[in-house]
Design a protein around this nucleic acid. Structure first.
Lengths: 145, 145
DNA sequence: AATATTAGTGGATAAAGTCCACTAAAAAGG
DNA sequence: CCTTTTTAGTGGACTTTATCCACTAATATT
């Protein structure tokens, strides 16, 4: 791999880290930390899950996850239902309140994204989109995540 | 902006967050935290700077930055030289030891990147590279960072 | 049945980051 | 100039975030 290509890609990574930082910042208005928001988003996305799924997916320490989930439960965003299949686990899902926050988080993420792209033409957006899909397809095909 | 496009791009962002996470993980072998490593990298990149430049660039709290720099100085990675122009500030630069670590961090980042791209053809890499450059150029032109 | 593994939890503690008040120097405004 | 305001940096105290470890109870393995 060419030295310049490597340097360019690393530059892109620094650049995109900043972009992601800007996009994620809005999440903090909710009173929940970035990690907590990720958990809520992931539960919403999975519709239903057990704690360990979240631990694996988000790579968060088990005991820490336990505490986060209990906090969210105390706050009424999440409910735990005893699993009949495995008594060690509980099924976790969003309460209506949790779903509201979930929707809010998504809505704001969308808004934030639209704001970021403001000023670009439809064609430019289309090309950026295509570029992203290409990168993702190629890197995903390596099956490293 | 099209709903599906937004969803795709947000999916890409989640995906790329993971990629960046994988790439960044190696940094932690050095005994320095992610933030500390960012500071070292930034000082190395700037060659010379004052603390406030780092605060602005990396968006880290001033007092926290002060502590990080002092830690790095105690560890012999960084030196502070009184500025003759402004007695409130000191010029910060890497010591030879700091430079060694800086080089090491860069080397490892490069290796990590090469490893990530392993399995792709030259043409594929070239196209990914072009896609990244395109995205960066377009988003950069908006001047939001 | 005995043993090993897995899911989840709490205590203790460490690491990371924030807030505030302060000093000293420099810049701005009269 | 000399007062006022701003800027750079620091340390104390604190909160938040995250990790480590030991433990329980349930399930899986042999």
């Amino acid at each position: 791999m060419n030295k310049n290509t490597i340097a360019d890609i690393r530059q892109f990574n620094r650049f995109y880290t900043n972009i992601l930082g800007v996009l994620d910042k809005h999440i903090l208005d909710t009173g929940y930390s970035f990690t907590e928001a990720r958990v809520i988003l992931e539960i919403g996305l999975m519709e239903q899950c057990i704690a360990n799924n979240l631990v694996d997916k988000l790579e968060i320490d088990r005991s820490y996850m336990s505490r986060i989930i209990n906090k969210l439960r105390k706050d009424g965003l999440v409910m735990k239902e005893n699993s009949t299949l495995d008594n060690r686990t509980s099924l976790i899902r969003l309460t209506p309140e949790g779903l509201t926050l979930f929707d809010q988080l998504n809505e704001r993420s969308d808004e934030q994204l639209v704001r970021l792209f403001q000023g670009l033409s439809q064609d430019e957006i289309k090309e950026i989109h295509a570029s992203m899909m290409f990168i993702q397809k190629k890197l995903d095909s390596l099956g490293r995540l």
